Simulated assay, not measured.
Amino acid sequence: MDKRQSLLKSVALARHQFIQAASGLTYEQSQFKPTPDVWSVVDNVEHMVWAEMGGINGIWKTLDGIRNKKPIWTGEAIHHGLPIEKIIEKTWKEKEQVPEIAKPRWGGSVDYWIEALANCQNMLEALCDEMDGYDLEQIIYPHIISGPLNVVQRLEFLRFHLNRHQRQIENLKSLPDFPLAR
């Protein structure tokens, strides 16, 4: 299995586990917020959709730029060779602020957002097929907080991000005042 397939598999597993954590909830459970500043389950899932759509689109734009000799990004690959966990440790604050573009804003049914997130995997796989023959470390699209990340780091980020928000959902579900299923 090549690096691309291995990374895709790790993202698919993280996506599946995230979706499992967010699935099977009542409306009240999916909307539950212990305090106004804490995201509900539906907020977490919607955020993941916006974040992934932006990242996947950015990588695709970057690949198109490389193909057409009009690169999206040029500069020093300051995180070259680093795993995403080290990059996040270096670049994120303890309580990082979500970029406006990735903030939950529509709300609605958690089932809608789960379906949208599941479909991000199809787009990601199609994108990875398009990268066949390209050096994944040379396709660099900046992350809004962490700066320039290559495709390997971007795929690691997707896994990391899904795991991070899965923990947030599991923490919500473990609160004593989380609504009971009916």
Rank of each mutant, 00 (worst) to 15 (best):
M1V: 13
D2V: 04
K3A: 14
R4I: 04
R4C: 08
Q5H: 08
S6K: 15
S6F: 13
L7W: 01
K9V: 10
K9Y: 07
K9R: 11
A12Y: 11
A12I: 09
A14L: 01
A14H: 02
R15T: 05
R15M: 12
H16V: 01
H16N: 11
Q17C: 05
A21F: 08
G24T: 12
L25A: 03
E28F: 00
F32A: 13
F32C: 11
F32T: 06
F32Y: 15
K33L: 01
K33N: 11
K33Y: 08
T35L: 13
P36V: 05
S40N: 04
V41P: 10
V42E: 01
V42L: 05
D43I: 10
N44M: 14
V45P: 06
V45E: 03
E46S: 05
H47L: 14
H47E: 00
W50L: 13
W50C: 04
W50F: 15
M53P: 06
M53H: 12
G55F: 04
G55Q: 02
I56V: 09
I56Q: 04
N57K: 13
T62N: 02
I66L: 14
N68S: 15
K70E: 12
K70Q: 05
I72G: 06
W73F: 15
T74Y: 14
G75I: 02
E76N: 13
I78P: 00
K86W: 06
I87V: 07
I87Y: 06
I88K: 03
K90I: 00
E96R: 11
P99W: 09
A102T: 06
A102M: 12
A102I: 05
P104N: 08
P104Q: 10
W106C: 13
W106A: 14
G108I: 11
G108V: 02
V110C: 15
Y112P: 07
W113R: 00
I114S: 05
E115V: 07
A118K: 14
N122S: 02
N122C: 07
M123V: 10
M123R: 13
M123Y: 10
L124A: 08
L124N: 00
E125R: 09
E125Y: 03
L127D: 05
L127S: 08
C128I: 09
C128D: 04
E130Y: 04
M131V: 14
G133E: 05
Y134S: 01
I140M: 03
I140P: 00
Y141W: 09
I145N: 10
I145C: 11
S146V: 00
S146G: 10
P148I: 03
V152K: 15
Q153E: 00
R154P: 03
L155T: 02
R159S: 14
H161Q: 10
H161D: 15
L162D: 12
N163G: 11
H165N: 06
Q168R: 03
N171I: 07
P176W: 08
P176F: 02
P176G: 10
P179R: 05
A181I: 07
R182G: 05
